[in-house]
Design a protein around this nucleic acid. Structure first.
Lengths: 224, 224
DNA sequence: ATTTGTCTTAACAATTTGATAATATTAATA
DNA sequence: TATTAATATTATCAAATTGTTAAGACAAAT
């Protein structure tokens, strides 16, 4: 999967903050916290989270204020916002959603419900992501499955693409031949010794660029 | 806003149905109703609603079943679904959201909360909704179901249209054959290996334009 | 009932790919 | 430098993948 989703949590109660952080981090999200509304705005601006969870009742700027403030900034017009509230009545819920939030969650927090909501919201948004490697003037787009060098498309066959994609994923790192076999061919496929070489050759030929270095007796590495 | 949003409500209690219908219609939505799960599926198919509100507890097919059934059909992969439930416990909520719903609502119904949730969901979706794709001199109108090239209408059969529409939704992106099968044919439909090819061929033939590229071993992509 | 058009499949052709073998080249080391 | 191990190069071939055409099942329209 691409990069980790960032989630910002703002609540003045340390316990709640901790519970949320623990559960979301365990699910693989990158979590940031804020102890009040103003801090939330600052961290939101600096971290550009994908989702912001706001407690409504906070000293100073409350959650609704923060939400309105953020929604007025283009950077956050598409950010997911969830309210956290103990006030379980019509009024606050309505106010929350009308101020531009995507959902709200009642306290006490039920971790499973929280995670489900978060995932449900992300499922809807996730679609607009990109997965491109950019190394110098070389661009490898894993989604579009193409390689561009100096704004010119280069057609690589599947194995060639996967091999280059692997090497370029960690420029400078030397990949052992075994490692390459496992990653590109799989653990149970057996191919001859020269197979990798031939593919490397084709890549070098097609790219016409000195970017794959042979490390004799060890493997190959990609560099600039 | 474009045209009226369509909402389908499925509940076995006539009272609830009426309350919901009244409130949503008053807000300007076009409302359809169903008295059970099977009717819901039928009406969903014929009306293509933008939002479906499903009672979880219904005789016969319950809401979760209906949701799963619908989500497996490409037509409904992006339709909003909200559950309606009196069961106020973790388990049912989690199950609901995991079966692909976007939100849930606890009974008793509080009209204002309902409307806020509905509006919050629509607000988020509206942005990704583009019924007319324009790529170069090619125009794909998903609502009218037609394709124009150089101001000339081109008649595509439904599967052809959906396939082209999918590929053109992300120009440059390579769609894996599997991905295409899921999106166009649905997750549980099984068709032979050559079916996609044949449809691709027909599109190429009818458009008479070099815009669909084969990426051998991977899939197809659309490009100007 | 007949026509029309859509969707799928089967059969075969055409193409591309990936692996190998054979040979050449390179780099390290005795 | 001669030797050797490792890699590079090239051509070739079988397998995998896709293209094409025609035909039949089915549904919708006439």
């Amino acid at each position: 999967m691409s990069s980790k989703k960032k989630i910002l949590i703002a609540d003045d109660e340390p316990d709640i903050l901790e519970i949320l952080q623990f559960n979301l981090a365990a699910e693989g999200f990158e979590v940031f916290t804020a102890k009040n509304g103003d801090e939330a705005i600052i961290k939101a601006t600096s971290e550009s989270p994908d989702l912001i969870i706001l407690d409504i009742m906070m000293p100073g700027k409350n959650g609704i204020d923060v939400c309105k403030h953020l929604r007025a900034i283009p950077q956050f017009s598409n950010t997911l916002i969830i309210f956290l509230t103990a006030i379980n009545n019509d009024l606050s819920e309505v106010k929350g959603l009308e101020s531009g939030a995507d959902d709200y969650l009642n306290k006490p927090i039920r971790p499973k419900v929280l995670l489900s909501k978060v995932n449900a919201l992300f499922r809807r948004i996730v679609k607009t992501e990109e997965d491109v490697l950019q190394i110098g003037n070389l661009q490898i787009d894993r989604e579009k499955y193409n390689v561009r060098l100096n704004n010119e498309d280069i057609l690589l066959a599947r194995k060639e693409f996967e091999l280059l994609s692997l090497l370029a994923s960690k420029p400078g790192k030397v990949f052992l031949r075994n490692e390459i076999l496992h990653q590109v061919w799989g653990t149970d496929v057996i191919v001859g010794d020269r197979t990798i070489d031939v593919h490397i050759r084709k890549i070098r030929q097609k790219l016409n660029l000195d970017c794959i270095t042979t490390v004799k007796g060890v493997g190959y590495k990609f560099e600039l």
